[in-house]
């Protein structure tokens, strides 16, 4: 009887470790994406996985890849998949990390099997099973990582697209970029109102320079945001109204009510400062053209 693959595979891995590692590293570096990992990195990763596999095979055999003995192997694969998913590898490129071990491993098995064709077939089959399971595991981790990445990115995008910045004591600014739909307005409104509470701001400037078009619905969203801020006790100024947007607003018959509007963020900021009791004074000294600000008690 030839030795069972679960007994022979660890032995071959043990005896020909360096040989397999060298061949595998070579396979990897040949097919590597340029600029993603150095040869040293690849070698370290391969060596780590091979050692973990050797230990796992020796202690529990090849049947239970999901078992506790294989945890260190899964850990290495998880890290590799995670990094590759983040670096933008495709799923097949990621699974190739494991699958490319087949050739060096089969070569090593053949060399040690000698003339025993039946034993070799059994060994190769056993090794294939292990590597395929590990490759599937890699693909799963890859998918999960990508999903989490996408979810986090879309959340980040929403928050990034609506930064609320403090311009001055009591003055907030909200530079809006892109289309203002209702879900976006909801996020804008919530973050603005939250920041008003946190900073105790009296004035908020909604700058729409980066909003491509303003239709009736967008105008309504803006009015809602301004009204909600007013209910909390903060005044809003809308700035960055480009000429064609001004025309559209009038053309559509949108009533902005008593909302204060300014052409530029700078004009709105000046008005906001005066509302909060701060006056802008240009320094008389010509050498200091930046001017100075004084806060006068109300």
């Amino acid at each position: 009887m030839p030795a069972t693959p679960s007994r022979r595979l660890p032995r071959v891995l043990d005896e020909r470790f360096d040989e397999i590692l060298a061949a595998w590293t070579k396979e990897q570096t040949n097919g590597a994406k340029p600029g993603t990992a150095s040869e040293g990195d690849i070698r370290a990763r391969c060596s780590e996985l091979l050692s973990a596999m050797r230990k796992a095979l020796a202690s529990s055999g090849a049947d239970d890849v999901q078992g506790p003995a294989w945890a260190p192997v899964r850990d290495v694969l998880q890290r590799v998949s995670f990094i590759r998913a983040q670096q933008g590898f495709t799923p097949s490129e990621t699974a190739t990390f494991v699958l490319s071990l087949k050739r060096p491993l089969f070569e090593a098995l053949r060399a040690s099997a000698g003339n025993d064709a039946e034993a070799l077939a059994t060994d190769v089959w056993g090794a294939t099973e292990v590597l395929d399971r590990l490759a599937l595991f890699t693909a799963e981790v890859y998918m999960k990582t990508r999903e989490e990445l996408i979810a986090r990115q879309s959340q980040d995008m929403l928050e990034l697209s609506t930064p609320v910045v403090k311009l001055w004591e009591g003055v907030l600014a909200l530079p809006m970029i892109g289309t203002l739909d209702s879900s976006r307005t909801q996020v804008v409104m919530e973050s603005l109102l939250q920041r008003i509470v946190e900073t105790g701001a009296d004035v908020a400037i909604l700058d729409i320079t980066g909003v491509p078009t303003v239709d009736t619905l967008t105008a309504q969203h803006l009015i809602k945001t301004v009204t909600a801020a007013r209910l909390m006790g903060a005044e809003c100024i809308i700035s960055g109204i480009r000429p064609q947007i001004a025309q559209t607003i009038v053309h559509l018959g949108v009533d902005l009510g008593d909302i204060v509007t300014k052409a530029t963020l700078a004009d709105a900021f000046k008005l906001a400062l005066s509302r909060t009791g701060t006056t802008l004074v240009r320094s008389r000294n010509g050498a200091n053209p930046t001017g100075s600000l004084t806060t006068t008690p109300r």
Partner: peptide, 23 residues
Amino acid sequence: MQPAVAITLVELGLSLPGVRTAL
């Protein structure tokens, strides 16, 4: 007025005209 309350009132269509507000 709490932010969530203000958002809800506006959506409901109540803007409390004539009422002054402060933080």
